[in-house]
Simulated scan of single mutants.
Amino acid sequence: MDNNTDIVIDEWQIKLDQKLLELKECQKNESLESCNPCDKFFDCDLRNKYVLAVYASMNKGSNGGFEF
């Protein structure tokens, strides 16, 4: 057995991390701590893409449903 530690890069986590950085940058630019007080909360393309990235990272892109 190989004693080297393999690093598995999760493409879904990378995409999620990128969207989170974009979202945090927007919040910083708008001087907000979160998206909640933003006027564009329900119509924000960036926030919607982040939410989709969260779901994709949870199901690894399989487009399956979630059971909580």
Rank of each mutant, 00 (worst) to 15 (best):
G64Y: 06
D39G: 03
M1H: 12
S31E: 12
T5H: 01
L21G: 05
K28A: 12
W12F: 14
Y50C: 11
K15L: 11
Q18Y: 10
D39M: 02
I7M: 06
A53F: 06
K28I: 03
K28Y: 10
Y55W: 06
V54D: 06
P37S: 02
E22M: 13
E33F: 04
C38G: 02
D10L: 06
I14K: 07
L16C: 09
R47G: 05
K24P: 04
L46I: 04
K60P: 05
V51R: 13
F41Q: 07
D43C: 05
D17A: 13
E22S: 14
D2V: 00
G61I: 03
E11L: 13
K40V: 04
K24N: 11
N59T: 11
L32F: 11
S57M: 02
D6K: 14
Q18W: 04
G65C: 09
L23W: 07
L16E: 01
I14E: 08
D2F: 00
I14N: 06
S34C: 13
D43R: 05
N36T: 11
C35R: 07
E33A: 10
C26G: 10
I14P: 04
E33T: 00
F41T: 01
I7C: 07
K40N: 14
Q27S: 09
G65S: 13
G64A: 09
Q18P: 03
A56E: 09
D39W: 02
K15C: 07
C35F: 03
L52W: 03
C44R: 05
V8C: 04
D39S: 05
L32I: 00
K15A: 14
E11I: 02
